[in-house]
Design a binder for these strands. Structure first.
Lengths: 215, 215
DNA sequence: CCTACCGATCGGTAGG
DNA sequence: CCTACCGATCGGTAGG
């Protein structure tokens, strides 16, 4: 017994069943925010939900901000992927531009916790935002779409970044209002309603962005 | 001494020097959010800043949500007033519509803490939002402006609420991105820059909202 | 990845 | 409006 105990203690005890505590912590964070709100997010509660003691997360994240940065990065990757998927189904430049915006709004509704972390007032430092990483560069995708529309002659000349910022404002505003529940009084709550609304708003704006004889 | 003590105790002791602890608590809340971020807001710290013990706020607010509701209501009043002021300077319906949106964005920048409380994911109950109070009904003002534009023939037919929601999305998105510091990388930080940007975006959208021969 | 511990803050209430 | 108190949670670290 004396020789068996110590040997087994270090050999047979499985460290973490899932094998990927880091990912488990990210998922626990999202579930927590979605169920209890952002204010309830603490490293201790996240650890609790992931089934480890409150000191374990520090093996993977220096602090709460580092955890949130990882959540945000994952969110930008997913959002960019959704945008690409939806744009790929379209056959015209303006169709792709609209799809880009609709995907943004749908992502926000389907991943509200991700959206809150990505665009909330957290983060003391800029959080590269994916400008260095194509798979997470949602804004770059939008700018490219605008440029494509300009080349096709369906959107006016001008700095694509400035026009893109206008598109971003529109869909970000709608997404924020939806995620924060400000449109419940207007009877908008389902994904399908949000999709229709985002499509209508996007079309109105693209119309304003178009070339006109008088401009 | 035996008769003097008790009498004076209830008569001469000033309760609260400012005379309006309620207002002092609202101001302390805004200062706290603006200096330390929303996450740092606690009733205790608010009380501390107002110079009273942490039990005092409960004389004015049942809990934190009640305090925040009062902050939000004050914010909606101020925002609506700013919109009216700026609209009054315009001479055309479309000018007033644009001014309405620009005022929204400027209010957000100048009163970021108010804006965060007003549109954040707090509040378990709807928070009347001023639909019953004309002095705080910013959305009603926007709808009225849209209606005026329709009557003047500068905005297409259609449910004014739906068109108003599109305008709201645009300015709410720009305001949110600015308040949450997401446009610092784009070099936009001053009030004047925000005003110019809001004006340009609003004009693009109003153009899209206009009547066209093809629609 | 865990146990055990630190100092600190919090919301809320009793009772005056 | 204050004092004194409650139970609970938190971020973070030592040390293994």
């Amino acid at each position: 017994m004396a020789t068996r105990g110590p040997r087994k203690k270090t050999a047979e005890k499985p460290r973490y069943h899932h094998g990927d505590l880091r990912q488990a912590l990210l998922e626990a964070s999202l579930a927590l925010i979605s169920e209890e709100g952002f204010g309830a997010l603490s490293l201790r509660e996240v650890a609790r939900r992931a089934g480890v003691t409150h000191a374990a997360p520090y093996r993977h994240f220096a602090d709460k901000e580092a955890l949130l940065a990882a959540v945000a990065e994952q969110g930008f990757r997913t959002m960019t992927a959704r945008m690409k998927e939806r744009m790929a189904r379209e056959t015209t430049p303006e169709g792709r531009l609209g799809a880009c915006g609709v995907a943004y709004v749908l992502f926000a509704m389907e991943h509200a916790s991700h959206f809150r972390v990505m665009f909330g007032p957290h983060f003391t430092q800029p959080l590269h935002l994916g400008t260095s990483d194509g798979d997470a560069d949602a804004f770059g995708l939008l700018v490219a779409s605008i440029t494509e529309c300009q080349r096709a002659g369906v959107v006016r000349e001008g700095e694509p970044q400035v026009l893109a910022l206008t598109c971003w404002s529109l869909v970000h505003g709608l997404a924020s209002l939806l995620v924060d529940g400000k449109l419940r009084g207007s009877g908008i709550s389902t994904l399908a309603q949000a999709e229709a609304l985002a499509g209508a708003q996007t079309r109105l704006l693209v119309r304003g962005l178009g070339r006109s004889s008088g401009d």
